[in-house]
Nucleic acid binder design. Structure first.
Lengths: 348, 348
DNA sequence: CCGGTCGTTGTAAACGATTCCACCAGATCG
DNA sequence: CGATCTGGTGGAATCGTTTACAACGACCGG
């Protein structure tokens, strides 16, 4: 692999001149420039990003640590993060924490060792000391989706409160009164927040949220299945199960099916996070959709602002309710084709 | 951020000694070692991976260029690749080509610029000159899932031939005679290969594969939908549609549903690539499952072998047919709970 | 004709690590 | 007792860039 020296030799100039051409510094003659460009072309030269990073102390790389790549919500988030970053001239390195704190730490450490310019993280389980230290030490950082209270780091997230209210209204209108929730880990903000919003919304309709109707999940399908089984074993099982993420909803669906019961006839189901597949499940699942692409975009912009010295800002975008059939038919029958399929790319 | 010099100063030794301790070189006294370790601890020192890479000419990083992150098959592949790489002491940088050649090129270029130690790629559309040059120039490379003929690069992939035969046998046994396929792009090996296997299997049952029954797709949901619509518009529509990947199958499902038709009563559906969601669709989809995790593992091992100077080997693993309900009820009714749910983690 | 400015160029010093080589003390051996 | 080896150490070169600084010729105005 040829280096800048080879190019300099081939073009008959010094390495400094080559470097200047490459970074289009103004003071280089047209003649020198064209000779350098020709040499670059001839040798197929590409600057070594490693050396460049060492010298300039910037990698033009962002780290993204997400909780679970297999979760379509995070996949989509990762994708939009990469898109926006690319548009802004940055690369992204993704670390999958798999909801495991020690894996999250591993990735944060690795990314920091690589001297990424900034870190986007959706913290798995409270914050690791490592991450907090990095933030305090001045590593540009932005939380996305989830965050850690009391840390001075911008947060980009969706507010599901209004959508959860809308969901409860919808359920109430359908005549449901015994509503249960499968919560995420209490240590995550999204875990606790969704329960709170749910409880609050129930309160407005004078409905209780007994402890037995709060299942503890971990955002994985299996935990959704187990929580649902426990609900079904209750003397008075709930009429509705609201899963705090899409994977747990799937587990719930499994559990219901394994009992030979049917959604929504025997028990209704709703989920937080809308994903393309919910259109095709049996039955299609009513869900709360986050503006995932916009979230990714906003997060990158905030992080890059911070990196490039502009003041970053926290962003909160509203989530919205998408009604399908898993909670029962709404009074006014909806035309089947009215709902545009989210399978299609939602790119502009 | 403290550097090796700071550590050396704090420990009262030279940078050479610090480096030796860090790379646990044998010839360093117990005394010096403990002083260095103490200093490292005190300063919270972490070696700069960028500098290290520049000097040693290795990044301990693998590049993975996949065709589409939103496709669960590739997501799972990416995950297993990262897991195996991590176990072997490597990091992975993922590039999403989104089935677009120019994006693929962008990522390959970026990864090469970063001097990754090796490249894992599932080529999108024929090979770009860039990639081929890199392979010729000696960049360790392994193709996964798809490959490019005539290039001397190991290939790790699943062979679907036997499974496609099994599928056709299954369909034939159910009485289906008019079978259609939605193919992937002809430029990809998986695109053409699956059609060939299908045609061959049909031949064994004396069934034709007329051109009208070959839909051209691009591995995206929308193309599956369009191809299916065209099938349904035919004077004599097929009885079965076999989609060459999971996204196109979803598009097909959409198209069928939009016409007010039902699977499998009006038309049967099968797919290449099994994904967890196929258990939950309406109806559950019969699919050909690839050993995705093993594929990812084998690919990483082959690549790392190549990087570390051992002879890499190509690997071909068999795919298998997973029968569900989308092609009609099999003669012998199967117990609903007999099929273990692939939703559960298949980690060991 | 001389001093200053300007545009273009090269030399060399970083960046933070690894590693070759030389050196030195102390142990070992003939 | 002198030669040789051995384990521990530091100095300095090196990786491929960027960039401060100095140098240099041309040009211009006084």
């Amino acid at each position: 692999m040829s280096s800048i020296k080879d190019v300099a030799a081939a073009a008959g100039v010094s390495v400094a001149t080559v470097s200047r051409v490459l970074n289009d510094h103004p003071s280089v003659s047209a003649d020198a420039r064209s000779r350098v460009l020709a040499a670059v072309e001839a040798l197929g030269y590409r600057p070594n990003a490693v050396a460049r990073s060492l010298r300039t102390d910037q990698t033009r790389t962002l780290g993204l640590v997400i909780s679970d790549v297999l979760n379509p919500y995070f996949t989509l988030l990762a994708r939009s993060v990469e898109e926006e970053a690319r548009a802004l001239g940055y690369s992204v390195i993704i670390g999958n924490a798999d909801e495991r704190p020690e894996l999250q730490d591993h990735h944060v450490r690795t990314l920091l060792d690589r001297r990424i310019d900034g870190l986007l993280v959706s913290p798995t389980c409270g914050g690791s000391p490592l991450m907090l230290d990095a933030a305090k030490a001045g590593t540009p950082m932005v939380f996305v989706d989830r965050w850690i209270a009391g840390v001075d780091v911008p947060v980009v997230r969706a507010d599901g409160r209004a959508a959860v209210h809308a969901l409860v209204a919808h359920l109430h209108a359908l005549g449901h009164r015994r509503l249960a929730i499968i919560a995420g880990p209490a240590a995550t903000t999204t875990g606790s927040e969704r329960v709170e919003a749910f409880r609050e919304a129930l309160g407005e309709y004078g409905l209780p949220l007994p402890d037995a109707y709060i299942g503890q999940g971990d955002f994985q399908a299996d935990s959704g299945r187990r929580a649902t089984e426990r609900f079904l074993d209750l003397a008075e099982p709930p009429e509705v199960v609201f899963a705090a993420d899409n994977l747990m909803a799937l587990g719930a669906l499994d559990a219901v099916r394994d009992r030979g019961l049917r959604v929504p006839d025997d028990i209704a189901l709703a989920a937080f996070d809308d994903i393309p597949w919910f259109v095709h499940t049996d039955p299609p699942v009513t869900a709360i959709a986050q503006p995932t692409r916009e979230l990714g975009r906003a997060a990158v912009r905030a992080l890059v602002d911070r990196i490039e010295g502009r003041p970053p800002e926290s962003v909160t975008l509203p989530a919205r309710l998408v009604v399908r059939r898993s909670c029962g038919e709404p009074a006014s029958a909806q035309a089947p084709a009215a709902q545009p399929s989210p399978m299609q790319r939602s790119m502009p």
